[in-house]
Design a protein around this nucleic acid. Structure first.
Lengths: 349, 349
DNA sequence: TTGTAGGCGTTATCAA
DNA sequence: TTGATAACGCCTACAA
């Protein structure tokens, strides 16, 4: 036990009180203290004594030392594509809250949408001996993920699936998210519906486009590929692509924009043009409820269950960390919510 | 050394190779291996042997075990008000990149703008025995910060200062940020300049308002307090307060909005009204260059040195972690950049 | 230059 | 129920 006397403030700071100290104070052995801490059998009267000693000394278990014995670090790694995307960080926020409650700390890494960085950071997490990992994968590098799983480190995938990886996953039903949104537009009589998609190589973007295509099939409508715009999930591309759409010879009467940043850009573009929502174009955006409420008219929007994603992922990981390997691998597909507001209108026939 | 044979894939996975294993393979003692790892004196020929053994076994130092001896965890705590604010997370992203390069992992916590959570998370970080902490404090609770510093854990404050805390800090010159922005508007002939501020109890908001006031003093202009709107740094308040400003009997001819979210809301409000930038109102926003470029006309904007804040903070902490206590406490005040675009115009006299 | 031995703060085994 | 005692993987005097 180190005692540090801060004379200038007359305050005593005690650091690193160990079980040894508690044992001495309680007049018992270290082994008994350890048992008490870990819920073993200790005489009732001794429990009181130990409890008192712990409180008085301000003892706290040294997790590092414990980790050395137990091979647990009480740490989980969280790996996301970017820390500069509010959708990702919101999910992190929820995961972190839940895990911290259970005593886990989280090492958060972002790989800046870079596949080689993704691998590096994953290696880093493994080296730091995290007990588990939650990741939004980008590369299709199931090799790496599998090597992590092979080390008996539970991994939970979120947002993006990886074909060929046997691994728990929490996904969003992106396909039906866009299916339902576009279907509403079709029901309202729209025949030419534009979509601003994300990059081809991103799982969620593929699925959202697929939903758009399938609903067209189901309603026996052919897709005009000129109405399908591929963006990069950034503000600027939403802005640019929306302008492209409305400047077409035969512009769409409705449009679905498939993430927050692009929705933002698209709204900016519309605001600056002379076309009006919903008179000239019906509009459905994605992801950010706060934004949708502020815009006039209120924006119709597809909401992803951000909170739920975090909860499910965190609890799934906690389950594995508890050693519960039942129904592995389990894949949860969460539903989005479609909020329809005045930004969409019926098309007269 | 545990060897695990994954028969189904015929792949051998070796986990936890220890120095002991390396020592055995190299025919030397553990102490020698340790010396080699830590740069001690080892015979050149033995260096080769050890190096070979390490490579073949894929040995990596167990940082946990090392930490037990050295009292270092090679982990730093990053504590921010919210993970759902891109300004904060961008800074994190930069700090994380730098620290990870030096072998440090980061435990990122957010306190959801809640003072009691802030204290809890700080305690949590201390309990996790982080080697250092970077935090954006909210509470004026210098008591807590001081207790951390008292434990010899270096702390670097960012974005927000804490009066009475002797502590390294990386700040932004918020006062002159708004001073310069408003000054430009004054130079262009504006007499009635509105400002949309953040909450009174947030350091940056106080400073930005102070800059607005001081430039008025310096130009011998009286502040019309009806032009000073207090928001909460969220989209909605930017939207609402801008509407309040333009609906005044005597509306301002120019406005400064003092963070990203409120800038976004304000732009939305303007777009939906019938007033035009810059003809009816000159506009200067804050923080997000990407947004500013997309809007038409391009937005004048105050840019905070996000990247630099992260760099300076990370390097300052690394310096302390190296044990370099020189010029403590050091406070760095970084300058913002004012980018003037077509969203501001000259007022004819 | 190398190796032996003790210790970091826990946990876990096995007698007592 | 309790308490020696031996790990866990690494570092570090000190001795060889």
């Amino acid at each position: 036990m180190n005692i540090e006397l801060n004379v200038s403030r007359m305050k005593v700071i005690i650091i690193s009180v160990t079980m040894k100290d508690v044992a001495r104070k309680a007049g018992l052995s270290i082994a008994t203290i350890s048992k008490y801490i870990n819920g073993g059998n200790v005489l009732k009267e001794n429990r009181v004594i130990i409890d008192k000693a712990i409180k008085e000394l301000g003892f706290e278990v040294n997790e590092i030392a414990r980790g050395l014995k137990t091979n647990k670090t009480m740490t989980v790694g969280l790996l996301i594509p970017s820390l500069e995307n509010i959708f990702f960080t919101s999910i992190l926020s929820n995961i972190e809250s839940i895990l911290i409650d259970k005593g886990y700390s989280t090492i958060i890494c972002d790989y800046k949408e870079d596949k080689s960085l993704e691998k590096q950071k994953l290696d880093f997490l493994v080296k730091k001996m995290v007990d588990g990992i939650v990741t939004m994968p980008m590369g299709c590098d199931l090799e790496i993920i599998n090597s992590v799983i092979g080390r008996n480190i539970p991994v939970v995938l979120i947002d993006r699936a990886l074909k060929g990886v046997d691994c728990d996953a929490v996904l969003v039903d992106n396909l039906n998210a866009s299916y339902n949104a576009v279907e509403q537009l079709i029901i309202l009589g729209h025949k030419r519906i534009g979509i601003i998609c994300g990059p081809d190589d991103i799982y969620t973007a593929q699925e959202r486009l697929r939903g758009y295509e399938r609903v067209h099939e189901d309603y026996a409508m052919t897709v005009d590929h000129k109405l399908v715009k591929k963006g990069d999930y950034q503000i600027e591309s939403g802005y640019r692509l929306l302008l492209e759409l409305i400047k077409m010879k035969e512009p769409p009467t409705a449009v679905l924009v498939t993430n927050y940043e692009m929705t933002l850009g698209a709204i900016m573009a519309i605001n600056e043009s002379d076309i009006k929502i919903p008179d000239d174009i019906s509009f459905i955006g994605f992801d950010n409820l706060q934004l949708a409420k502020v815009v006039k008219p209120p924006l119709s929007i597809v909401i992803q269950p951000v909170k739920q994603i975090g909860e499910v992922a965190a609890n799934m990981l906690l389950k594995r960390l508890r050693g519960d390997g039942s129904s592995f691998p389990s894949m949860v597909r969460l539903k989005t919510e479609l909020i329809l507001k005045d930004s969409v209108r019926k098309i007269g026939d």
